[in-house]
């Protein structure tokens, strides 16, 4: 009896010593939004299919979302963003110059403005997908307030039948760090 008791006891102790690792957990400590507290609908960056896109569109951008991911712009699309102060940010814009419009307009020059200041002026000699990205002087940024960004096209295509004015196919625009 005693001889069988010891191994049994040892086995029980070994099993009790096993680390108990649960498979079910309570929610952890919630991290706070890091950069801007209570951002509201206006943020620092906008994808065109964002449900809150309308809050960012100031002028010259179609209200219609095309193919679930992009919108037509006019000649001077303008957006509002809410940005943190004192950060080194880059203005970023992903867009496409449509082949159809490019055939009529030829090379397009776009002037990028942040809060009315010229960030850059770029000539695009071909159609297709484009990516613009450039650091913004932190002094130009109004921390915690509304900031405006504009892309000004030197020419756009005007539809001969209904007079629709088409600039760029815009996918996303905003500020990143």
């Amino acid at each position: 009896m005693r001889s069988s008791l010891l191994p049994t006891l040892a086995l029980c102790l070994a099993i009790c010593a096993c680390t108990s690792i649960p498979n079910i957990y309570a929610p952890p400590v919630q991290r706070k939004p890091f950069e801007i507290h209570d951002t509201g609908p206006v943020r620092h960056f906008l994808a065109m299919n964002d449900p809150a896109a309308a809050a960012h569109l100031v002028a010259d951008v179609s209200q219609t979302l095309e193919a679930g991911s992009w919108r037509w712009t006019g000649q001077r699309p303008t957006f509002r963003f809410r940005l943190p102060a004192g950060k080194k940010l880059r203005f970023v814009m992903d867009f496409t110059i449509a082949e159809m419009t490019f055939q009529k307009t030829g090379p397009v020059t776009i002037t990028f403005l942040v809060n009315g200041r010229q960030l850059d002026r770029v000539r695009y000699d071909s159609h297709g997908e484009k990516h613009f990205e450039k650091p913004v002087d932190p002094d130009w940024i109004r921390g915690g307030e509304e900031n405006r960004a504009t892309a000004e096209l030197d020419k756009i295509w005007v539809a001969p039948d209904d007079g629709a004015k088409l600039g760029l196919i815009l996918t996303r625009v905003g500020f990143l760090d």
């Binding site: 929610p27 919630q30 991290r31």
Partner: peptide, 25 residues
């Protein structure tokens, strides 16, 4: 809101499921 009474699990890797509920980017 993620209440303390919620219970989270996953299959596989249940041990890291809290990472999907911590509000961290």
């Amino acid at each position: 809101p993620r209440e303390a009474g919620w219970r989270l699990t996953a299959q596989p890797n249940p041990w890291e499921v809290q990472l999907a509920f911590d509000n961290s980017p």
